[in-house]
Every structure is written in structure tokens, then in C-alpha cells.
């Protein structure tokens, strides 16, 4: 019995280590991006060339402009 316990722990750890961090596991508890905050940031004053600005706009496009289809769907 003494030898089985460490073996069991090692097996369990190896099993857990083999599982990649799967984003779909987090979708249930994921919170939506709060894009309303973006409206208060005055997008006109933001640098459109800045990757952060571009990422924010891209991520919030659906929420801020639901009528516009993303480029890929046109």
C-alpha cells in the first residue's frame, strides 16, 4: 500500500500535466467585455495606429455596432 500511494499521486499529476489549458473550459464563467467603457474613452482622441486601440475596437465592434458585419462575414 505504501508504494501505491506515491504511484497514484505521480500518475494523477502526469495526467493533469498532459491536459493543455483549454480556453473553452473558461467560457462558462467568462465575463463579457464591458465595451460601454469604451464609449467614455473618446475613441476620436485615441491613436488609431496603436495596437491596443485597434484591439479594443476590434473586440468591441459587435457590441458597439451590432448592425455592422465583421470583415470576414462580408
Amino acid at each position: 500500500m505504501k508504494i501505491f500511494t506515491p504511484l497514484l499521486i505521480v500518475t494523477l499529476l502526469l495526467t493533469l500535466a498532459a491536459q493543455a489549458h483549454d480556453p473553452s473550459q473558461h467560457k462558462d464563467k467568462a465575463e463579457k467585455p464591458q465595451c460601454a467603457a469604451l464609449k467614455d474613452m473618446d475613441i476620436k482622441k485615441m491613436d488609431k495606429q496603436d495596437p491596443v486601440t485597434q484591439a479594443l475596437i476590434k473586440k468591441c465592434m459587435k457590441q458597439l455596432h451590432p448592425e455592422e458585419k465583421p470583415e470576414t462575414e462580408k
Binding site: 480556453p23 467560457k27 467568462a30 465575463e31 463579457k32 467585455p33 464591458q34 484591439a55 479594443l56
Partner: peptide, 8 residues
Amino acid sequence: QILTARDE
């Protein structure tokens, strides 16, 4: 918050 939210 916006950039890290995993939008489903």
C-alpha cells in the same frame, strides 16, 4: 477588462 474577457 475588455482585452482579457473571453467573449464567447
